[in-house]
């Protein structure tokens, strides 16, 4: 089941709405990386609030997404990781190192605003 991607201002927002197969996740990653270029997006938010399991494949795909979109000029932030999911992830050894995380969509937007403003100011 494909994940809808919403474009808002400079940002792309993908809200995961159901349990995703590996294939769905890969498609999401590829779609986001493609659209970052297409819309010249500055930020990507992946909302995983409804995701009840984040295993090694999902974590790796999100990490890859973050690195790939950064190479294409957009910052990615993962929002909405549930407490239980975070707990299971760290026990499994998945820490999403180098990938910013925020509590929810609102926090994610605030994070990207700070991040992209700083970049603009520096230029």
């Amino acid at each position: 089941m494909p994940v809808p991607i919403l474009k808002q201002r400079d940002y792309l927002i993908a809200t995961i709405q159901a349990a995703l197969t590996d294939d769905d996740l890969k498609k999401l990653r590829d779609a986001l990386v493609a659209q970052v270029g297409e819309f010249r997006s500055r930020g990507v938010i992946v909302d995983v609030t409804t995701l009840d399991v984040m295993d090694s494949f999902a974590a790796r795909t999100l990490r890859d997404l973050s690195h790939m979109s950064r190479l294409r000029g957009a910052e990615t932030v993962i929002v909405g990781i549930q407490p239980e999911v975070a707990f299971a992830m760290v026990q499994l050894g998945l820490t999403l190192e180098g990938v910013p995380a925020a509590l929810d969509l609102e926090e994610g937007l605030a994070y990207l605003d700070r991040k992209t403003k700083r970049k603009t100011a520096a230029k």
Binding site: D22, D52, V53, M54, D55, S56, F57, Q82, P83, E84, V85, F87, A88, M89, Q91, L92
Partner: peptide, 17 residues
Amino acid sequence: SSTEATLIATAISELAR
């Protein structure tokens, strides 16, 4: 508990993978 169920589901996901 829901935390434990998440740990179990995560383990199953890894094994199935």
